[in-house]
Computed example of a mutant assay.
Amino acid sequence: MERIAVFCSASQDIDDIYAEKARELGAWMGDNGKCLVYGGTSSGLMEVIAAEAKAHGAMVMGVVPTIVEERGKTSDICDVVFRTDNLSDRKDVMLRESEVAVALPGGVGTLDEIFTVMASATIGYHHKQVILYNINGFWNGVIAFLDGLEQQNFAHSPLKNYYKVANSFEELVEMIK
């Protein structure tokens, strides 16, 4: 996998462990010749991973909705900027430009991105998976929810066909390879 979409928080007010793990992933991406495809915002984990990836030689592709650009929150780290009309277009471009998606901790925007990738895979638009990077058990509630959907027959096929869970950096790297 050469082009990796990373979904993550734009929040500045989160535990430092998440920034540490984002830096670790960004450094690995640069050191291993990967390209980061991300939301292009200049705050939170988005800016952290982009700065580290860039510092280690990765190409950085930001996908920026008009409203983010109008608010002056586009990162200046990006080598390539895709401008989109809205969040739906942003997700489409990120999915098109990447081979795999990794979800670091994030909020409703990150959930939206995860579920968009999964939902479009369930009906055959692509065969990409989302890797939930489960730092400190962050995604445990979502994983339990997805398991509950299957148990209650709200999923037409096993949802694990559309996502994986990495509980450590080593597991994440193996899944990306």
Score class of each variant (00 low, 15 high):
99 E>P: 13
104 L>T: 02
45 L>V: 07
59 M>V: 09
70 E>G: 09
64 V>K: 02
114 I>Y: 13
82 F>V: 14
79 D>Y: 10
46 M>K: 02
60 V>G: 03
80 V>D: 04
84 T>G: 14
108 V>S: 15
118 M>L: 13
118 M>D: 04
87 L>D: 07
113 E>L: 11
48 V>R: 04
49 I>H: 02
92 D>V: 13
114 I>S: 08
53 A>Y: 01
51 A>E: 10
97 E>G: 14
121 A>H: 11
30 G>F: 01
52 E>C: 15
50 A>M: 02
96 R>D: 11
98 S>I: 02
108 V>M: 15
118 M>R: 01
121 A>S: 15
78 C>L: 10
111 L>H: 08
33 G>N: 11
93 V>C: 09
95 L>K: 06
55 A>K: 09
97 E>K: 14
86 N>G: 09
116 T>W: 01
79 D>N: 11
118 M>E: 05
35 C>M: 10
102 V>E: 09
43 S>D: 05
77 I>F: 05
45 L>I: 05
34 K>W: 00
115 F>L: 04
99 E>Q: 15
47 E>K: 06
76 D>A: 14
31 D>C: 08
104 L>I: 01
63 V>P: 09
99 E>R: 12
97 E>H: 07
67 I>G: 11
103 A>S: 06
34 K>I: 10
49 I>A: 03
28 W>E: 08
61 M>R: 06
107 G>R: 04
72 G>C: 10
44 G>D: 00
102 V>T: 02
81 V>C: 12
89 D>V: 07
49 I>T: 06
106 G>Y: 05
79 D>K: 05
97 E>Q: 15
107 G>K: 05
86 N>H: 12
116 T>V: 12
88 S>Q: 12
116 T>P: 04
39 G>F: 00
112 D>C: 08
60 V>M: 01
34 K>F: 01
72 G>R: 02
101 A>K: 08
107 G>Y: 03
101 A>D: 04
110 T>L: 12
28 W>F: 12
81 V>H: 06
101 A>P: 05
83 R>W: 12
55 A>P: 04
111 L>W: 00
116 T>M: 09
52 E>S: 14
77 I>E: 03
62 G>H: 05
55 A>D: 05
60 V>A: 03
114 I>C: 07
107 G>I: 02
77 I>M: 08
30 G>N: 07
117 V>A: 14
107 G>V: 06
39 G>S: 08
92 D>W: 03
121 A>F: 06
119 A>E: 12
35 C>F: 03
105 P>A: 12
106 G>S: 07
85 D>K: 15
49 I>C: 10
95 L>W: 00
82 F>W: 07
80 V>T: 03
47 E>M: 08
28 W>S: 11
51 A>K: 14
112 D>A: 14
59 M>I: 09
99 E>S: 15
69 E>H: 09
44 G>F: 00
36 L>H: 00
81 V>Y: 03
41 T>A: 15
